[in-house]
Design a protein around this nucleic acid. Structure first.
Lengths: 147, 147
DNA sequence: CTGCAACTTAAAGTTCACTTCAGCTCAAGG
DNA sequence: CCTTGAGCTGAAGTGAACTTTAAGTTGCAG
């Protein structure tokens, strides 16, 4: 089997055919057509779908994913190096996301002791009562002071 | 100032008034009314809003948050102990989420070397080609084998 | 007591990420 | 050849999480 039908791609990627068509409309993936107008996918498309799934796990919007995928070469099948570059960028984003969640976890651990979530005492929730400086909301977590 | 107007609560929590009304309709927060039908909030409601914001950071749906908040006592203002119990439960969820993302990051790091995201060689993307066993998609990450 | 910002409501609108539907055509096995 | 499952399209529907709109009311400062 040289190319994949939409059913094949769906089965191998775990993404519904309707979602694959949707991704194509959105310019995230590409297909060629048979004489009878059916989609056929290069195996390389599987990598794109994989990338999309991973990025979604990390909480990235399709729009951002589209932009990232657009940085891959259009005229040729992306090489390992192309994918490496993209992966490295995402590893970075992923690390940032993890850092935010870890900070959140650690602060929450501290708060379990005091049972607070209090605006008066707990910098987890909202330091803006004492430090109405850097905007509103849980600033200590989303945007902590330089250490 | 004994109670907060919706504008006060919005300013202090960083959540739009329309969102606060929405949360009330959804049973996530509560208010009393003035004789003129305007909302007034106890300061304690601020904790609820804080909790909602934090849970959303972690990627929890409002429905789940609603369920969690429903475990707080209705007849009295929640104590520190009440909030502690809830926080401990969420710390757990948060840790699980972090673990998934870390696994994703580590596997992605391995993949940067090979530039793959390949179905043939990379278990990050889809082990189901070699191990079409536990279902489809990035199983190694979402549901890794016991170590 | 007046003016005006802040509040009220129900209903409709928005964005994201898809899914479902209706009404077709295509491709492959018996 | 014929049936049947897989695929096609455009349009409409879904659910989550809000926001916006329109039309009216309240509350406080001056």
């Amino acid at each position: 089997m040289e190319t994949l039908t939409i059913g094949d791609l769906s089965a191998r990627s775990g993404v519904a055919p309707s979602a694959l068509r949707f991704y194509e409309r959105e310019g995230l993936i590409h297909s060629t057509r048979t004489s009878g107008n059916q989609r056929r996918y290069e195996r390389a498309e599987l990598r794109r779908v994989a990338f999309i799934k991973i990025a979604q796990q990390v909480g990235v919007s399709l729009e951002e994913i589209r932009t990232a995928l657009a940085s891959l070469p259009e005229n040729r099948t992306p090489t390992k190096a192309d994918w490496s570059r993209l992966s490295a960028r995402w590893r970075h984003k992923l690390q940032e996301r993890i850092t935010v969640l870890e900070r959140l976890r650690d602060q929450l651990t501290g708060c379990i002791g005091c049972g607070c979530l209090s605006l008066q005492r707990c910098n987890l929730v909202n330091p803006s009562d004492q430090l109405a400086l850097r905007g509103v909301g849980p600033q200590m977590i989303l945007n902590p002071p330089a250490e």
